[in-house]
Structure formats: C-alpha cells, structure tokens
C-alpha cells in the first residue's frame, strides 16, 4: 500500500464519517460542524490529486465563507434541536431497503469499473491552466452561472418578502 492510498483511505473515511454524522446529529450547529469536517477532508482529497488551487478554494469558500453563512443563519433563526419523526411504513419497509440496494449496486458498478482503469496520470493543474479553461473554453457556462446565481437571488428575494407581508 503506497502512502497515497493510505492517505486517500483515511481522508475518504473521515469524509464519509462526517457526512453520516451531518445527517444523524440532532442539533443544527453540530450538523454544520460535521459539514466542515467533510469539506476539509474533501480539500485533502483534492490536494492528493495534485489540484492545489481547487483544494485552497474548497477551504476558503466552502470551509470558510459558506460555513460562516450557515452558522449565522442557524444563530439568527435560533434553531434548536430538531424533532425526530418516525419514518412512515412505506419509507421503512420499501424506501430503506431500496436505498441500500441502490447504494450497493452503484458501489459495485463503480468498483468493478475502476478496478482495472488505468487513469492517465493527470499533469499538475496550475491556476493558470484552470483560468485558461474557465475564461476561454468554458466562458459560456461560466457567464451563465452568474445568471444562475441571479435567479437564485431573485428567488430568495421573492420568498423572503412573502414572510414580511404576512
């Protein structure tokens, strides 16, 4: 086992554990903290692939800015512990087994597909390469994304103002 694989296994385990804990925690703040673990573990995985820029952005944007927003929202709403409802019978006897089957199936397919996959050694992607891609080849979806964000903003405005008028 090479050190890379060992590192990968550790980081992947941390990410999955964080994601599971994110769902199982009852208090929103604990969920948010679990999310940070996931984000940092993912940044480590990116770093392992040689994508330094993406790893740094992952920490700054997701681990930093977005998490602060999450925590602020939780604080402003003063969200307490959530109440747990029992799963409906349909969800327990049909949904959960189907979900497990689906997960195993996907894991099997991906596992069997990647076992013998000789991925081409990706050259280290520099920030320069990345920006060339983003602002030349992919400039169209890049600009579209700003409209996507505009739509989300407009939507948030429509939804938020409704609360006010009631």
């Amino acid at each position: 086992m090479t050190p890379q694989i060992a590192m990968f296994l550790v980081l992947a385990a941390v990410a999955v554990a964080g994601a599971v804990s994110l769902i199982l925690q009852r208090h929103p703040i604990h969920s948010a903290l679990s999310l940070i673990t996931v984000m940092v573990a993912l940044a480590g995985l990116y770093l392992l692939q040689g994508a330094e820029f993406v790893a740094a952005v992952q920490i700054i944007v997701y681990g930093g800015a977005i998490m602060v927003l999450f925590v602020f929202v939780i604080m402003l709403l003063n969200a307490g512990e959530e109440e747990r409802t029992n799963m409906s019978r349909m969800a327990r006897y049909v949904g959960v087994p189907l979900g497990v089957v689906f997960m195993i199936e996907i894991a099997y397919w991906i596992g069997s597909a990647t076992l013998h996959l000789n991925a081409p050694a990706s050259g280290v992607v520099s920030t320069r390469d990345l920006s060339n891609l983003l602002f030349r080849e992919y400039v169209f979806p890049f600009e579209l994304t700003s409209f996507l964000i505009l739509i989300a903003l407009l939507g948030a405005l429509v939804l938020a103002r409704r609360e006010e008028s009631e």
Partner: peptide
C-alpha cells in the same frame, strides 16, 4: 456539452421552484 446543459437545467429548475410557490 453536459456541463453547459447542466447550468441550463438548473436555471430552469431553480426559477421553477420559486414560481411554484408564488401564491402567498
């Protein structure tokens, strides 16, 4: 190209979510 298609899909979806809840 699939990423471009994805951004288009999300533009239409997110606007749809908001429009669906437009009745106050």
């Amino acid at each position: 190209e699939l990423l471009t298609a994805f951004v288009g899909l999300e533009m239409s979806s997110i606007a749809s979510y908001v429009l669906a809840t437009y009745r106050r």
